[in-house]
Design a protein around this nucleic acid. Structure first.
Lengths: 184, 184
DNA sequence: GCAGGCATGTAACAAGTTACATGATTAC
DNA sequence: GTAATCATGTAACTTGTTACATGCCTGC
């Protein structure tokens, strides 16, 4: 249900083609809701059938034609309806946690995995922090859409920071456990 | 791919029936990988066909018969194979973040949603912290499986704490923004 | 007598992934 | 010539969700 709404929100910020939406879902909004172009094209078609968006064929020279989607009045109404409707609390779904529980089999392999994940999350965190500095230098002056985008980014920063800290806690504990095992 | 492995890990900790696994996926392991009984029964059948588990029919009196599943040698080998294989970094998928970006439409509705989520995450956090105190009173003495379970729980605590803190940040910012709007 | 727990499943559908397919333009 | 970007899609498959279905036992 939520991909429809993510696309509607993105199109309400700025109209665009399926291809452009795919780009946006590779960054910004996509950091909080991932989607592939196949999913996006499929959902756009469904939303067009439902009347939530208008389509405009735009011929381009030097580039293939594109279909630019705009949110319709019905689409805007759907956003409001969905905003008022309570959402399920976000649930964790973490393969690394499951691997950690399986770690008795091969503690070193799991430690290596945790270290890999730490590096990936640290990288993502650095990206978010760079975005924060670049796009929101004066955070006290923010209002409206810019404030909301900033707050979403802050959520991403918090989540990645938490992830990195957890990986560190796990690595420290696993190392200490291994050392204790040796000296026993 | 990962539900298979979550079930294998759970069965390797303790054999059980589909029904018992469903209970476990309502708590403990399920806090980090949710699944319904329909999914579990389907996957158990597939794993039985693949030879990853053994099934034993256990008649009970006063209760319906049950099928108790145990991890086979092939299943244990599959766990090792999967442990060595790198996993994708955990990605965020947060409907609340999308709603926040849509907030220009109705800031009050979104603030109410954020407050609701804050309450739910605070409740979940309290549960995890209670589990921590009850099940792991002496955290420095932990080793092996108990240590790993503790670390997974620590991850949950960190994630929920981060969520609550983020909701607070958002609520404060939205309130300040609304006040500024009024006095202008 | 009725709700709730134990125990297993089927069926239909929605959402997400992976692979395949096409074709023009631009930059190296 | 070859890889990358722009641009749209189909098809097959896997996962996850929702609804339906059965039946016995226990406690109120």
């Amino acid at each position: 249900m939520a991909l429809e709404h993510a696309i509607l929100v993105s199109l309400s910020e700025r109209p665009g083609s399926g291809y452009e939406l795919t780009r946006r879902f590779d960054k910004s909004i996509g950091f909080f809701w991932r989607a592939t172009h196949q999913q996006i094209y499929r959902v756009l078609k469904r939303m067009d059938d439902a009347g939530w968006v208008h389509v405009e064929h735009v011929p381009q020279d030097g580039k293939p034609d594109k279909k630019v989607y705009t949110v319709s009045a019905e689409g805007a109404a759907e956003i409001s309806r969905w905003l008022a409707e309570p959402a399920q609390p976000t649930e964790l779904r973490d393969e690394l946690a499951i691997k950690l529980r399986a770690a008795h089999g091969d503690p070193d392999a799991v430690a290596a995995e945790v270290a890999r994940h730490r590096a990936q999350h640290a990288e993502r965190l650095a990206l978010y922090e760079a975005m924060e500095r670049r796009d929101f230098p004066d955070r006290d002056a923010l209002t409206g859409p810019a404030l909301h985008q900033f707050l979403v980014l802050r959520g991403g920063i918090g989540a990645e920071r938490g992830f990195v800290a957890w990986c560190d806690e796990v690595l420290t504990a696993l190392r200490r456990d291994a050392e204790r095992g040796e000296t026993r």
